[in-house]
Write a protein that binds this DNA or RNA. Structure first.
Length: 343
DNA sequence: GCTCCACAGGAAAACAAGGGAA
DNA sequence: TTCCCTTGTTTTCCTGTGGAGC
């Protein structure tokens, strides 16, 4: 059933892109000066989750490296690496310059090392850049002539609103590449490509791919997740082909798996809060703090809990409804409609 | 309109942890 | 071994907002 499991992973970069040629061309053009040994303006990739921003960035940069292997590429996911120190460290790690750097190494030294590594151009791809807590690092990187920035985020307005004036004015110039949600036919084509490479011939029919695409609501990440889950289920059942029943049961799997991955990454106290919100369905802050204090042995202060709750809202795990006294926390609905609104 | 209260979030201080230097 | 430096996390203090009650 499954011929090549790598193809069914979200982070797989295909050898040919489907339905994103304009976006690839625009990004390629913005990076073209690198081939002539010049620097570039920042490139911004905007669009909702699951529209192929990261995939296209990786694909385009792989193409660029084929033309000029001297160009180095570093990917940083700002969900995990959200401080100035972590971003600089990740970039240095990507170019093998992070030796003997530790927690107490001054940030200026990290910046200095990056500055010293200017013998070859470096493209720094900052994914989920709107999650950066210290956007001054963008100013730092922009100052380095050998570093080209590719910044990936959901919405332009929200990203620029989070910048301070200095960063905003520096990064104002640059190429914007806007990604729209995939239509059902486009998503079917992407899934067909993955199925052709990853599954045995005729393992899944076109109308089944259409069912998956419709359930994914334009989100390729979810669509590929459903396909992967369906293929695994069929394999476990010993079937030679994916059945419609298997697809129907795989649809909720994909969204649950994405959420579960985020929940598993929560800190202990965040997890307690998440579980309590899940248990109650909807809860007001005062009651939540009260119950939390009863449940854990060494409770954190309410200020820390507010920080945790803010983080979980950012993670799209919970949402707050109402304001001030009428505020309630609840889990983000796990259906496609909600996903559309949030993206 | 005034006061009280619940709530969110910014700023700065305090603290913990890890590593280097003496 | 101790002190110092740096970072990340947590706490303390504070301000702003707006609903509820009078």
């Amino acid at each position: 059933m499954i011929v090549d499991a790598r193809v069914l992973r979200e982070d797989f970069v295909p050898s040919e892109v489907v339905h994103r040629h304009d976006e690839v061309n625009l990004l390629s053009e913005s990076l073209e000066p690198l081939l002539a040994g010049h620097g570039t303006d920042p490139a911004f990739l905007f669009g909702p989750t699951g529209v192929g921003k990261t995939c296209i960035a990786r694909y385009t940069l792989a193409q660029l490296r084929e033309q000029d292997p001297d160009v180095r590429v570093a990917y940083v996911n700002c969900w995990q690496e959200y401080t100035r120190f972590r971003v600089l460290y990740s970039l240095l790690e990507s170019i093998d310059q992070a030796v003997s750097i530790h927690r107490s190494t001054p940030k200026d030294e990290l910046f200095g090392r990056l500055d010293d590594a200017g013998d070859r151009p470096l493209v720094a791809v900052l994914d989920e850049v709107d999650q950066l807590e210290e956007t001054a690092v963008l100013y730092d990187l922009h100052r380095l002539p050998h570093v080209s920035l590719v910044l990936i985020a959901n919405r332009e307005e929200e990203l620029f609103a989070s910048f301070d004036d200095r960063v905003r004015s520096r990064l104002h110039a640059g190429t914007r590449v806007q990604f729209d949600r995939y239509g059902t036919d486009e998503l079917v084509a992407i899934l067909r490509e993955r199925a052709t490479q990853g599954l045995e011939p005729n393992a899944v029919r076109t109308e089944q791919l259409r069912t998956i695409a419709e359930a994914a609501s334009g989100d390729a990440r979810v669509g590929i997740g459903i396909l992967r889950s369906a293929a695994r289920r069929a394999k476990q059942a010993g079937d030679e082909r994916v059945t419609t029943t298997v697809i129907e049961s795989a649809i909720p799997d994909a969204r649950t798996a994405i959420r579960q991955k985020t929940v598993e990454g929560l800190l202990e106290h965040q997890r307690v809060l998440y579980d309590m919100i899940e248990d109650t369905g909807e809860i007001e802050p005062g009651t939540l703090y009260e119950r939390y204090e009863q449940r854990v042995e060494e409770p954190k202060t309410t200020r820390t809990l507010r920080n945790h709750l803010t983080k979980m809202v950012h993670y799209d795990l919970i949402e707050s409804v109402g304001k001030h006294r009428g505020r309630r926390y609840r889990l983000v609905a796990d259906d496609s409609d909600q996903s559309d609104e949030d993206s």
